[in-house]
Nucleic acid binder design. Structure first.
Lengths: 138, 138
DNA sequence: CTTGATGCTCTAGTGACTAGAGGTCCTACA
DNA sequence: TGTAGGACCTCTAGTCACTAGAGCATCAAG
């Protein structure tokens, strides 16, 4: 049996976050001891580990809820899980592509500047005027 | 003179968002007409354009506030603006690197699956067990 | 002069937590 | 057995950057 603090240390998920997951119904309510403190078993540990790993991979709590509801069902429907994972992958790829465009534009903008103290900051004017942009972000 | 709707159309920033920017002090309060409706001049248009462009580049509203307070000061301190822009660039680069690791792991996980309906979804077990991971994300 | 779009303020909700107040409980040590 | 201090409890409110909706007022075109 683990306390919430032990669970937190073991998984790297903060204590208030664990309580939050319970509040929104992502983690099942654990048993309590005589003093009303949460006591978790191995299943609680596993569930939180699953959530932590999926969060690290960028899945939303909503996605995780769906995947957890599928997990453990007789004859798990892998195709739904697969669909969620592929959607997540393509979302991540899209974010990377967008961020790369932004990085290029930011690089261009910061290079405009000679760190001068003169009255016309090129960075500011580059930010103010989209027409100066190379890319079509946004 | 522009109405809030015209400003919205011209900049691509939604009407409630413009009002929100005003509320948090990012946009100066514009004049009002006899019927208490906001009326903007070219300066309002420019300010909103600046915000839009900077937001598209991923700057926080807090960063934008600082940059706008610098803009227009006598002898703008370009070095501070430059610092903010470089910090933003390295934050974007870090996010890209992290997302690329995630994409690799997600790709690996989704490839585990043959879309079967059997009782052991490999995607789920890969998500549940970090030890199966190639990378050390998170 | 009417109609429908646009505008106004205000409140509340989103996601995924985080912070703090004010109290209770558990554990280790003397 | 007493006590100190850390861990735990609930509850409320705040974060960021909006978004949605209610219930009205105003504006512009026909």
């Amino acid at each position: 049996m683990f306390s919430i603090g032990q669970l937190s240390k073991a998984t790297g998920v903060k204590v208030p976050t664990i309580r939050y997951y319970e509040e929104i119904g992502l983690l099942p309510q654990p048993g309590r001891n005589a003093g009303n403190q949460r006591r978790y078993g191995q299943d609680g540990m596993d569930a939180l580990g699953f959530i932590k790993h999926a969060r690290d991979l960028g899945f939303s709590l909503e996605d995780i809820k769906v995947m957890m509801s599928i997990e453990g069902q007789l004859g798990e429907d892998c195709s739904e899980v697969h669909r969620i994972a592929e959607a997540q992958l393509s979302a991540v790829r899209a974010r990377i592509a967008r961020l790369e465009r932004l990085a290029g534009e930011l690089e261009r903008i910061t290079h405009l500047c000679g760190h001068g103290q003169g009255g016309d900051c090129k960075v500011l004017s580059a930010l103010g005027d989209h027409a100066q942009c190379g890319s079509d972000h946004g």
